[in-house]
Amino acid sequence: MEVIIVPSSKEIGALAADSIEALVRNKPNAVIGLATGSSPLPIYDELARRHADEGLNFSAVSGFALDEYVGLPSGHFESYREVIRREFTNRVDVAAENVHGPDGSTEDLLGACQAYEDAISAAGGIDLQILGVGTNGHIGFNEPGSSLASRTRIKTLAEQTRQDNARFFDHLDQVPHHVVTQGLGTIMDARHLVLVAFGAGKADAVRDFVEGPVSAACPASILQFHPRATVIIDEAAASKLAGAPSYRHAYDNKPAWQGL
């Protein structure tokens, strides 16, 4: 796991966008795993800027969302399929038919979970997965206690997660209790994981998954087992890391040719 500490969310977005741009220029039909929430927004803003100002081409790229609420009607403003379109894919030239999300509105949720796994496999797997981390250590919607080998499935949201996400709705009671999410095993199949986090509110979770034991109690800790996991955080999110000086030294002396 590589931990990179930068001054602000703007630098987080730029570094993560560098990695995605390098991938897309090297592999125009790259498959990118798309996350929602506040953490990825600086990445999407920077990629949209590079598309508009520098002609970065996403026309052959495919995108797969991490998760989706269960029970929101199709086209709901806060459904993650709509959020991803609004925040990223509609701002670049990704073909609409190449943007995929798990179906949380179907009556056959179990079938939808398997269909999503099959769609990811048919696309050749995910080249780069964008991740955020919840205050309780979840990635995707894999709440504490999730199986480290889990695949795409239905999950019940922890109450803390519902409270954290209530800011996107008018009232807490509008936040669904259930989601369809890629499992931890599904996420770990991606060839490169890029997790971003900023703000003091994420400091405990960052400390726990970077430097704590690998445990289902902190689902993001499974990144310690991935051969290519990049964690990009700001100073506030890094404030509880005992190894912060070592992480800074390693990044400051990293060969330029190595990339992320």
Rank of each mutant, 00 (worst) to 15 (best):
F209C: 02
T161R: 03
I187L: 08
G55R: 04
I32R: 01
D204A: 02
H76C: 01
T36H: 14
R85L: 04
E82Q: 13
H192W: 09
A217N: 14
N253G: 03
Y251I: 00
G37K: 04
D103T: 09
E11G: 04
G140D: 04
G201D: 11
I120H: 07
T230F: 11
A242H: 14
T161P: 11
A96D: 15
V94A: 08
W257N: 12
I130C: 15
G185C: 10
I126Y: 03
V175D: 02
D252M: 07
V214A: 10
F58L: 01
N98Q: 12
G55C: 08
T181N: 13
G124W: 07
A119D: 12
V83G: 05
D18A: 06
I139N: 01
L56M: 09
F209H: 03
S105M: 00
I126Q: 03
A242P: 14
G140P: 07
H177G: 11
F169Q: 01
A60T: 12
T181I: 11
S19N: 01
I130F: 15
L109M: 12
F77Y: 10
P144V: 01
V175C: 02
E21K: 04
H138Y: 02
F64E: 04
A14V: 11
H177P: 08
N26M: 11
A96F: 15
G140K: 02
S38E: 10
S39L: 07
R50F: 15
E78R: 08
Q163W: 05
A166Q: 13
P255N: 00
L34E: 07
L56D: 10
S246T: 15
A52N: 09
P102V: 00
T89L: 09
A200K: 11
V70M: 08
V231Q: 01
E68G: 06
V180G: 03
D67C: 10
V99H: 06
R49W: 14
F168N: 07
A16Q: 14
R153H: 12
E78D: 03
A115M: 12
M1P: 02
L15G: 00
A95E: 13
L110P: 14
E82L: 06
R248M: 13
R50G: 13
F209L: 01
V70E: 06
I222S: 02
I20C: 09
L47H: 05
D127V: 01
